[in-house]
């Protein structure tokens, strides 16, 4: 069983230059391997660096040290060292990231925002939009809202649009940062079903799930994080 994601010796320290140059070590030598079909839950208290791990894998945080190998297109890409264009290619084909907030694009309809990952891969616009609508329906976004821009949606609705954007594209690797945080029970169930389906088709999933119930429902393994200051 080959790992889809392999993190070795990941270190990350934030230096806040405008606050007296304070250095905040968050990760110091973090390791993680995730195989296809696994759903790994990162666990630990708030501020310990769970989101930082996900962001380093996604590439929007830059690792200070270590390797972050993601299987992509028959090879593997070190997200800590790849050229920006390489990172974008991995994100387009392989890596889906559900962040805690939907970044709303003015004037873009919910269904178009959800269809975008497919469009970027060159899927026919009509087909992409149909897939987007189907995914929005699964997440209980009423059809009346599909053509509207999500800027005016409630927090829960925005979060579901965010989920739809990622689950529509069948990524081989999923990074889920509190995917169910602002969802009610019914929608939480829908999200759990989607995550399990993804694992079922062989996706490698790394997630942060605060809700113990959700964690129990989806995680195949839990990885505890400890404070970098102690580990270092």
């Amino acid at each position: 069983m080959t790992a889809m994601v392999e993190v070795e010796g990941l270190a990350k320290t934030f230096t806040l230059h405008n606050q007296g140059g304070v250095r905040l070590p968050v990760l110091a030598g973090f390791d993680l391997a995730v195989a296809a079909g696994e759903c790994v839950a990162l666990h630990g208290p708030s501020g310990i660096g769970k989101s930082t791990v996900l962001r380093c894998i996604y590439g929007n945080y830059r690792a200070d040290r270590g390797r972050i190998l993601v299987r992509h297109g028959g090879g593997s890409v070190d997200m800590a060292a790849a050229h920006p264009r390489g990172i974008l290619a991995v994100r387009r084909e392989t890596l889906g990231h559900v962040s805690q907030f939907l970044r709303v694009i003015p004037r873009v309809a919910a269904e178009d925002a959800v269809a975008e990952p497919l469009r970027l891969r060159g899927t026919d616009p009509q087909e992409a939009r149909q897939a987007a609508r189907a995914m929005l329906r699964r997440l209980n976004i009423p059809a009346a809202l599909h053509r509207l821009a999500p800027a005016t949606f409630s927090g829960g609705e925005q979060q579901r649009v965010n989920l739809a954007r990622v689950f529509v594209a069948d990524y081989p690797v999923l990074l889920l940062d509190e995917p169910t945080a602002s969802l009610d029970r019914e929608n939480r169930e829908a999200a759990i079903a989607l995550i399990r389906e993804a694992a079922g088709r062989g996706a490698a999933i790394v997630g942060i799930f605060h809700d113990a119930e959700v964690r129990a429902a989806v995680a195949t393994r839990t990885v505890p994080l400890t404070a970098a200051r102690e580990a270092a």
Partner: peptide, 30 residues
Amino acid sequence: HRLLVMRRGKVVESGLTDQVLDDPEHPYSQ
């Protein structure tokens, strides 16, 4: 897709847009 941050005529930081905006490293970018 990518950003260059300029200050006093020089590029002080560059990278993927979300890298630079989510994890700015240069004091000026921060």
